[in-house]
Simulated scan of single mutants.
Amino acid sequence: MNFIKEAENILLHYNDLHRSLTNIEKQITQLVTISRPKELSAITLEVTGIPAKRVDETLNILYTLQTLQECKERTIGEFAKINKVLEDMGKEKGCELYGKVLRSWYIDKLAKEDIAEMIGYSTKRSVYDLRDKAIRKFAVMMFGIKALEVL
Rank of each mutant, 00 (worst) to 15 (best):
A111K: 07
T29I: 11
L86C: 15
I145Q: 11
N15S: 15
M1P: 10
L97V: 08
I76M: 03
G144W: 10
T48C: 02
V127S: 04
K112Q: 15
M1H: 12
L62S: 10
T33Q: 08
Y106G: 00
A52L: 15
L130N: 01
K53S: 15
L97P: 05
I107M: 03
I10N: 00
N9E: 12
S41I: 08
N15H: 11
C71G: 02
I107P: 10
G144R: 08
V140T: 00
E70S: 07
I76G: 04
E25T: 01
E87L: 06
E78S: 12
K53A: 12
E113V: 00
R136W: 05
E25W: 06
N83Y: 14
R54E: 14
T22K: 14
D16Y: 09
E8V: 05
P51E: 02
E57G: 00
I50Q: 06
N9P: 08
G77Y: 00
H13C: 06
H13N: 14
K81E: 11
Q27H: 09
T123F: 06
K124F: 08
Q66Y: 06
R19G: 05
K146N: 13
E25C: 04
K112P: 03
T29W: 01
K26G: 08
K146H: 13
I135V: 13
K93P: 00
L151D: 06
G77T: 00
F138V: 04
D108H: 10
N23C: 07
A134H: 01
Y106R: 04
L17G: 15
F3E: 00
C95S: 11
M1Q: 03
E8Q: 15
L40R: 14
L86F: 11
A52Q: 14
E8K: 15
K93E: 09
M89Q: 09
G144L: 09
L102M: 10
F138A: 01
E92K: 03
A42N: 11
R103A: 02
Q66D: 06
V140K: 15
L62I: 09
Q66T: 01
Y14S: 02
H18C: 05
I4A: 06
I24M: 05
K53E: 13
T22D: 01
Q66K: 14
K81I: 04
S41D: 12
S35Q: 12
E149Q: 14
Y98N: 01
K133F: 03
C71R: 15
L11Q: 12
F143H: 01
R19W: 05
N83L: 11
K72P: 08
V55C: 07
T29N: 12
G90M: 03
I24H: 00
I61S: 11
K26T: 04
K146I: 14
W105R: 04
N23V: 06
Q27P: 05
R136L: 01
V47S: 15
I50R: 11
G94A: 02
A42C: 07
A7Y: 08
I135F: 02
G144P: 04
L68I: 13
I10Q: 09
I119V: 07
M142Q: 05
A80D: 13
